[in-house]
């Protein structure tokens, strides 16, 4: 219960910080200069500034509070798969990959949620989930490592926080602003915290910036390679996703929030191409994968 208070508090703190630090006005100017902001956000420029500040300036505690709220909401929609062996295994692999990232010491937590849908999710603070539908379909630990590397990149590069202020998710930005307003006008912090988790979960429904998905693919391959896996396992995952009927309900959310698997493969083709082939003969699969996957 106590943790729910953290979110509105964090936002209020971010506003206070931005008001006392005019250096951020530069970023705000950049933000307001394009057609990237909705009218609504422009009107609420002070709150917009607070959001912009939050992209670079969230403390680890604030990120944890945001991620915690978002995860509570997502896990409310689909709980963890009831298999401790699988959950521990995914944490071992996930942390090993995350240790090769820019934030090896973040409080990384991984899990498999019980839904036949094919998807994966990340939230600030180091929370990462993949669905049972995706887990069932992957064929090697290298494929798992590449998927987790993609999600780890969303966390380390703060793509979700960034998406909140982008034109694509004006509504989430406004929601966030209204949460701040709610918090300021009443003392019901817990209620606002709950609403915060919901508003921020909208990112999972609306999707991130398309470019950030491409960035996460390329850097996910790099992280997998650093961890000793064949990075081209991400190519086989995307080929697998490409073979699923797009009208299938299990991929509806994934396909509506990401560039198509073909577009993502074309991007990897152009950006990575043969450049990681020196690492392609690394580990494809492990004993532990075969033990847990049965």
């Amino acid at each position: 219960m106590k943790k729910q208070f953290l979110l509105p508090f964090a936002l209020a703190a971010a506003i206070t910080a931005s008001l006392s630090a005019p250096a951020h006005a530069l970023d705000l100017g950049k933000l307001l200069s394009g057609d990237t902001l909705s009218k609504g956000l422009s009107v609420l420029s002070n709150a917009g500034e607070a959001l912009n500040t939050s992209v670079k300036g969230l403390t680890p505690e604030q990120e944890e509070a945001l991620g915690h709220n978002v995860m509570a909401n997502l896990l409310g929609a689909a709980p963890l798969m009831n298999d401790a062996k699988v959950q521990r295994y995914v944490n071992q692999v996930g942390l090993w990959v995350a240790m090769q990232s820019e934030q090896p010491n973040l409080n990384w937590r991984f899990g498999v949620i019980d839904t036949p849908n094919i998807n994966s999710f990340a939230a600030a603070g180091g929370y990462i989930l993949i669905t049972r539908g995706l887990w069932d379909r992957i064929r090697s630990e290298a494929e798992l490592a590449a998927i987790l590397g993609h999600e780890i990149t969303h966390v380390t590069q703060k793509h979700h926080v960034k998406a909140l202020i982008s034109s694509k998710s004006q509504q989430a930005g406004s929601d966030l602003i209204s949460i701040v307003a709610d918090y300021n006008s009443s003392k019901s912090g817990a209620k606002a915290g709950e609403k915060g988790g919901k508003a921020l979960s909208e990112i999972f429904v609306r999707g991130l910036d398309k470019n950030d998905e491409y960035v996460a693919d390329v850097n996910g391959m790099v992280l997998a390679a650093r961890a000793g896996y064949n990075p081209y396992a991400l190519v086989s995952v995307l080929q697998l996703l490409g073979s699923v009927n797009a009208s299938d309900s299990t991929v509806a959310l994934l396909f509506s929030t990401h560039p198509s698997p073909q577009e993502r493969l074309d991007n990897i083709d152009q950006v990575v191409g043969e450049k990681l082939e020196g690492y392609a003969d690394a580990t494809e699969n492990t004993k532990r994968f075969n033990q847990v996957k049965r």
């Binding site: 839904t115 299990t250 509506s256």
Partner: peptide, 10 residues
């Protein structure tokens, strides 16, 4: 499955 509605209504 885990649909947009389920995430929104969770």
């Amino acid at each position: 499955g885990l649909s947009a509605e389920e995430i929104q209504n969770a």
